[in-house]
Nucleic acid binder design. Structure first.
Length: 559
RNA sequence: AGUCCCAUGGUGUAAUGGUAGCACUGCACAUUUUGGUUGUGUAUGUCUAGGUUCGAGUCCUGGUGGGACUACCA
């Protein structure tokens, strides 16, 4: 810590709290965090931020980080989600020190509830949900005590025991803390601690008829595990006094500190589990792992790397301010990573046939291409060239625009790693659509340079017509047309981008034939693409992860 | 409306009373067999009014703006 030579790196506010605690010798200088998802949905990029923070803090301060499933609500939770969550955390590159479930502590939490009753700090309430609302008061008006608040401790004990045994139907009784119905903090107005719920729990089965509420279970779980810093999002700020009240009143062995930070918001998407669930259930997307989803599994299928997601999470920072992160930062993170790692390859998305009239018919030659200019160790490969090739439709303009240096009538361009070609003739169909180009090539420019020193401004990609292979390519765009689809007055589903997915058939170079699912490539000049799990030995399927930055598109916009 | 939280370029995030910095984005130039990458430059900022201080983005007070809370969800 006393590096005098190194520049002091700035700390986020949570690191500052931790370093202060360490300096004061709090918690025997132990740092123990946890990532506590409820297993009722898939993890999204917002969870990734929390994961990177919690596990990162543990690593940075030589502490520990637990994975804890917050499974106190048997109605919504399921094993399917547990497995997906474990898988996502591991994929992101983290290993938890211990795995727990809130349900591991059901007996302990129950015992704490009994203790609370004995301390005369909790009572069994008989008010209906509707009556509860009435007694609860509002933000401006105080609530009033439940008529059942003064039951004897013995009666409360008996009732709570019978609640547990299943003697009463759901909703009949509720265990509540005795705090203060006039508190300006609504969460202090005799909050619910335990409710009757005769539901099968995916872990504890039918063992329990009562389940603890979040507020009661969370702080106790943290205390039981010896968590020192319990990080959550801003909306739990008003719960903190209750969190502390519970652990202090029950004199738990450790007193974890709850710290709140702002959640991550991303432009052009939604981040709440409820809304993501809706997109899945109503089939607006193909599933939780649809490549348009902001879920960890969706991003992974889209071609995002764990490294890029971690970098992104570091870059967005930690604070208590409401924020809206521009997706371009996410896109920057994946481009940065894939630029270093992804092998280059040529693929034509929207093919236009080109016949090189002075190239010998039937001849095929292999030309050397660099796999990754950013990484010499990636080596080289051979790509076949022949008389008939495909180029990108967008790389030809019959009437060239200003600053256009791709192919045009009479213009000369370089075919990447191949030859200089000059467009001699345009062939159109009856409707006037350009269907083919006739070009001539300069045999002396093999490899892409002319011995006479002649320069061309444009270099375009191509695929040999006879050797190229067809592939399905899924082009993804943002899922919503609005920056903040869930902040406006219209329903967020009305803002779904109807063109968020375009499926095309592209022609790619033959080296891709055996490409494995999950592997990423850069299609030169087009973007990063990864092989989708839907690929079969006879049908390649690619997902476009992200386009390359497109300087020409910007120039074209201005013309 | 009450209580609590927050306020720094277009977007995020630093500066712990002492030169407002970094990243993304935008723009410009250079380099380039990817209009990619890389490099260089540039534009834009402390919500407001007072106060404390030699000195305030930072501390204090008021205002304004935004957010959270009012579930037998988490």
């Amino acid at each position: 810590m006393e590096e005098t030579t190194e520049e002091k790196k700035s700390l986020n506010f949570i690191e500052q709290i931790i370093e202060n605690d360490l300096a004061e010798g709090k918690n025997e200088k132990r740092i123990h965090t946890r990532f506590p998802p409820e297993p009722n949905g898939y993890l999204h990029i917002g969870h990734a931020k929390s994961i990177v923070l919690n596990f990162g803090l543990a690593t940075k301060y030589a502490g520990k980080c637990n994975l804890r499933f917050d499974d106190t609500n048997p109605e919504t939770e399921d094993e399917e989600y547990v497995n997906a969550i474990r898988n996502d955390v591991k994929w992101l590159g983290f290993q938890w020190d211990a795995e727990f479930n809130a349900s591991d502590y059901f007996q302990k939490i129950y015992d704490y509830a009994v203790q609370l009753i004995k301390l005369d700090k909790a009572f069994v309430c008989e008010l209906s949900a509707e009556q509860m609302r009435e007694y609860h008061g509002t933000a401006v008006t105080p609530g009033k005590d439940s008529p059942y608040k003064n039951r004897s401790i013995e009666e409360n004990l008996d009732l709570f025991d019978r609640m547990r045994k299943g003697e009463f139907p759901d909703g009949k009784y509720l265990l509540r803390a005795k705090i203060d119905m006039a508190s300006p903090n609504m969460h202090f107005r005799d909050p619910a601690l335990y409710r009757i719920r005769k539901k099968h729990h995916y872990r504890t089965g039918d063992q329990w008829n009562v389940y603890p509420m979040y507020d009661f279970a969370h702080g106790l779980s943290d205390a039981i595990e010896g968590i020192t810093h319990s990080i959550c999002t801003l909306e739990f700020e008003v719960h903190r006094p209750l969190y502390e009240w519970i652990n202090n009143t029950l004199q738990t062995p450790t007193r974890p500190q709850q710290i709140e930070m702002s959640r991550l918001n991303l432009t052009y998407t939604v981040m709440s589990k409820r809304k993501l669930m809706q997109l899945v259930n109503e089939k607006h997307v193909s599933g939780w792992d649809d490549p348009r989803m902001p879920t960890v599994s969706g991003l992974r299928r889209r071609g995002y790397t764990a490294q890029a997601i971690r970098e992104f999470c570091e870059r967005v920072g930690i604070s208590k301010r409401e924020n809206l992160i521009d997706v371009s930062l996410l896109e920057f993170s994946i481009r940065e990573d894939l630029n270093k790692k992804a092998p280059r390859v040529m693929g034509v998305l929207h093919p236009l046939k080109v016949v090189i009239t002075n190239y010998p018919e039937g001849q095929v030659e292999e030309l050397e291409a660099v796999n990754n200019p950013e990484d010499e160790s990636a080596g080289k490969r051979m790509v076949p060239f022949s008389r008939e090739i495909y180029i990108e439709q967008d790389d030809f303009l019959e009437v060239p625009a200003k600053k256009w240096f791709r192919l045009a009538p009479g213009a000369e361009v370089r075919l990447r790693y191949a030859y200089f070609v000059t467009c001699q003739e345009i062939i159109k169909d009856a409707a006037g659509k350009i269907v083919e180009l006739r070009c001539t090539y300069d045999p002396a420019s093999r490899g892409g340079n002319s011995p006479d020193g002649r320069k061309v401004k444009g270099t375009i990609h191509w695929v040999s017509a006879s050797e190229g292979i067809g592939a399905q390519v899924r082009l993804y765009d943002r899922l919503f047309t609005h920056e903040t689809p869930d902040k406006g007055e219209v329903d967020f589903k009305e803002l779904i981008n109807p063109n968020s997915l375009e499926v095309i058939t592209a022609i790619v170079e033959p080296s891709l034939k055996l490409a494995q699912a999950g592997v990423s490539f850069q299609f030169e000049r087009m973007g990063y693409f990864c092989v989708d799990k839907d690929s079969t030995p006879t049908q390649l399927v690619f997902n476009r992860t992200v386009t390359l930055k497109d300087a020409w598109a910007k120039i074209a916009e201005k013309i």
